Computed example of a mutant assay.
Amino acid sequence: MSSSPLPMAPAGSITLVQGIEVGHFTDTRRPTGCTAILAKAGAVGGVDVRGAAPGTRETDLLHPTNLVERVHGIMLAGGSAWGLDAASGAMRWLEEQGVGLDISVGRIPLVPAAVLFDVLVGDMRIRPDAHAGYAACQAASSAMPAQGNVGAGAGAAVGKIFGIQRAMKGGIGTASVTVDGVTVGAIIACNALGDVLHPDTAQVVAGARTSDGLGLIDTRRALLRGEPPQPLLAGTNTTIGVIATDATITKALASRLATVGHDGLARAINPVHTMSDGDTLFCLGTGAAGRSPGMMVLATMAAEAVAQATLQAVLHANRLQIDAGENHKALHLPSAADLQ
């Protein structure tokens, strides 16, 4: 156990990107929830799915060769596949605001979504639904979003490769980078199978714990020295998030920024993109800055924002204690601060 406090990531937020609003819904009945990332004026969209067990909705329309150019929000949710229903609530709310693709007889809000698996944390019968997605949109604003045990990160855990009983609390975090008046931000809900590392030092910040629960085992080194992982059910993890920029970009460039954003995940999570993760990153380009510093700079900014937002997710997480119930087991997930 280290005696020095963990360094916090630089200040920033995806809501510093012009045209982006964020709102959370956190279910008080068990730790789960959803997070709406809204671009009510519309934003060029892209996506890159790297995990082998994703849960997604409306990702095909984001392919650069497909018709639709702009979307109106992204929904991130817990609840595994059931959580995809939260996007329906976001569509309903946006339609009420007059937001969506004009089809002459009305408007269709376009809200791609991705989910993470948090149903081992408490009663799995409680999960985000359309009501939750609607409430997240109602709460959306350009203010600094809450981080840690809220929204899509409420039931997140990290470091489950040796069993969830040795895992730690994950969460949701945000960060941003601004260069010459252009901002790239990210919001990441981290429910990773692997450990979370500090992207600047490679120090393990949160993840699988030693058998006594008092320290970090360092999953990468443990696997390389031959410690066997616990048998895993595919899709029981997943880190999902959104990159946004106010730079002027095309749909193809939005997809490329989603791709390079995964470099940030690889700097902050190990192992990442596993057969039991559904790691998915979206990208939104509002164009509100009216210019671009070029893709080399934007790509560097995107990877940095993702890495730092992933770190923020666990640094802001609080410990979670769930007592045994009729439909769930007892669970203790310490926070990163608890092990310092």
Rank of each mutant, 00 (worst) to 15 (best):
V182H: 14
L333D: 11
A43T: 12
H24Y: 11
G171K: 14
G287I: 13
M275W: 13
Y134T: 08
L265W: 02
G23S: 06
A252N: 05
I188K: 07
S13P: 01
K329G: 04
G264R: 15
L233G: 06
G170R: 14
A114V: 02
G79W: 00
K329R: 11
R221E: 03
P271D: 15
K251Q: 11
A244M: 07
A302P: 00
T183K: 13
G264E: 06
S276K: 00
M168F: 12
A208D: 01
L84T: 06
A309Y: 05
L253W: 03
D212R: 03
V314F: 07
V260Q: 06
E96F: 09
T239L: 11
V115W: 02
I217F: 01
A202N: 14
A77W: 00
Q18Y: 00
V22W: 10
V182K: 14
V158Q: 05
V22I: 15
S176I: 03
L214A: 12
V182W: 13
G226V: 05
V242M: 10
I240L: 04
G155L: 01
M75F: 06
Q203C: 02
A139Y: 08
Q203V: 12
V182F: 13
P145K: 01
P271L: 14
R107D: 02
R57N: 09
V105T: 14
R127D: 00
C137D: 10
G159P: 03
A130K: 04
T28Q: 13
A36Q: 09
R256I: 04
A156Q: 07
A189I: 15
A268Q: 07
A130G: 07
R107M: 04
L62K: 04
I20Y: 11
A146S: 14
H316Q: 10
